[in-house]
Amino acid sequence: MEFVRPDSIEAAVAALQADGAACLAGGATLVAMMNADLVAPDRLVSLRDVAALRDAIRRPDGTVVIGAMRRHRETAEETDLRDGQRVLSEAAAQIANPPVRNMGTIGGSCAFADPAADYPPALLAADARFALIGAVGRRTVPAGDFFLDWYETALEPGELIEAVILPPAPAGTVGSYTKLARVAGDFAIASVALVLGMDGGACTHLAVAVGACGPAPVRRRDVEAELIGGGLGDAEIRRLTDALAEAFDPVDDVRASADYRRRVAPRMVRQALVEAQQRLSETL
């Protein structure tokens, strides 16, 4: 095994082109797997010294670009995330525990793509895009096309996540993240990320993504679109939760049964939407 610590993004990409090379970000997942003898990359490319990956920038239009090496604690405390974008900081604050939040990065978490992780649904609800860079250059991929299957993403071999791009959330929207876990800091049994805007009882913005209920986070843009412009009462919420539930594909695991996930996630969505509406009406 070889260890390299490039100090530029270009050098990192170059180092990644070898067979069996892997990025080392926070190490919270990768080193744990190495300790358990589950993986042994031939080359570890530490991204520690690539300064550009550590920043978060808010552009004048409200777009926020978060470097892949931004740690969970920093994202949790990120004041540049505003309105509905706060869904991401709420999610970051609920990952693991303080020492792990001091280590883990948004790039590492998304690249690993644990279906029970907290960022994937939050990013999907925030309409985020991934900025990727590889030997052939840069490209961006919407979150909905990035998380493909169990632990599988759109990353090509030799490609790395450079940043996560959050579009501006419409002013006055609210973002929230709700997680059900066995104990504090555990991976989710199920989680709900949402961004909501209401104007005098009518829904102006609606994005709901559910985590841990299938190989990738689940969102029903088709139904969301139908609900825009109307109220968001029991019946409307029911339409959305029914549609989401149709798209769930959960499994039984040590955290909970698939059956429970199917039943509890719609209840969590309903509760989260009710609470988000309350939050909106309180801020008016």
Binding site: F3, R5, L24, G26, G27, A28, V31, A32, N35, L44, S46, R48, R73, N97, P98, P99, V100, N102, M103
Partner: peptide, 21 residues
């Protein structure tokens, strides 16, 4: 958490930190 140390003032897991890093 039994292996927790601070690195640059922040608590982290020393079991998940590679020494070379």
């Amino acid at each position: 958490g039994a292996c927790t140390v601070t690195i640059d003032g922040e608590p982290v897991r020393s079991c998940l930190s590679l020494a070379l890093n």
